[in-house]
Nucleic acid binder design. Sequence first.
DNA 1: AACAAATACATGTACATACATGTAATATAA
DNA 2: TTATATTACATGTATGTACATGTATTTGTT
Lengths: 192, 192
Amino acid sequence: MPAPVLKCCFCCKQIVNLNPVLKTAGFKFGKLYVHTYICVVKLEEAIKSVNFRNQTHKAGLNILYTAWWLKTTMSRELKNFGLTHEQYNVLRILKGKNPEEMCVKDIAGRMIEKSSNVPRIIDRLVLKKLVKRSTDLEDKRHTLMSLTPAGVNILELSTAKINKLFDELIPMDDASASKLNTLLEKVREKEP
Amino acid sequence: MPAPVLKCCFCCKQIVNLNPVLKTAGFKFGKLYVHTYICVVKLEEAIKSVNFRNQTHKAGLNILYTAWWLKTTMSRELKNFGLTHEQYNVLRILKGKNPEEMCVKDIAGRMIEKSSNVPRIIDRLVLKKLVKRSTDLEDKRHTLMSLTPAGVNILELSTAKINKLFDELIPMDDASASKLNTLLEKVREKEP
DNA sequence: AACAAATACATGTACATACATGTAATATAA
DNA sequence: TTATATTACATGTATGTACATGTATTTGTT
């Protein structure tokens, strides 16, 4: 019998056994030993810390942790489509104008992470034939991108999955979500 | 006169002029032309999108964007100390047990981003002589880390700055921050 | 028209993430 | 005790972030 695979089936793969970060319980799945995990909901358990200076300080860490959690959850789903989170974002942005073409700057301005290196993300999408790239003849500095039919197709399939995931995963009514949005915008109220 | 540096002084460096993502206004600073920026507070402006399926969907994107904004803001401050965000995190975690030593797994379990590659972050801190590394003689699989005096010093200085930044930046009372924490934990309530 | 300035983006580097795999050390079981 | 399982971590690869710089193209000025 091969050595059992002792790996957390989703996150925290480096922390495999009996680590208090996780409430773990293993089970066998065919020839695999799969780690079930329950990622912890309370921030204090998640990062093993209770020493926050105040609730605002805790909120900062909570935002960072929740973003990581969300990104990881989505990435796991996107992996089934051979897409990374950022590649999916670019496809989604292109879809917004489809079948119109968009230049790098337009795409960059719509990215969530503003320091993304859009040309290189496009490189990978072009390799997978999900995006096609051409030069603008009106202004040759512009590189114009648009979705291929394969790109449209994979985006539709993956978006359906992601939306389903979101709806099932986050048990939140519109009023609470609205409140959350207001509070997050309050965090960003003062600009540095 | 040299070509003016047309660069956003903080974020969105790729989007320099008249981009609606930013409400820009330039000014001269010595020989530099510096871009002042006002990063947009409303998510709709920040990512130029209004088509959210519902408030929960918007909240997901809002969390991701706010986390990016927060990380970028902190990183800018940490750059003055020659530290990255992740290197700072590791120092902070080591400080929690100082002068006790910690192994890789202990540190990893306390990281906000659970998939961080702790040994390599440590590599860089050791190079800067902020952390020292040794092998546990009781269990030679363990690598033990602790802060050097220089590490303690730089952590104190940078933490003072980061705390000050936090307090001045985020205009939020304890009650609102508490509400925010509750809502973020509600987002993570169901585990995938 | 000719030159300078500005723009758009490609590309290079250091660091980080996400994940797979290799290796030495320890724990457990036959 | 010896073989096997398990752990801890180092290391390799692909991708992404953050930022600096190079280059072709366009715009603005004289």
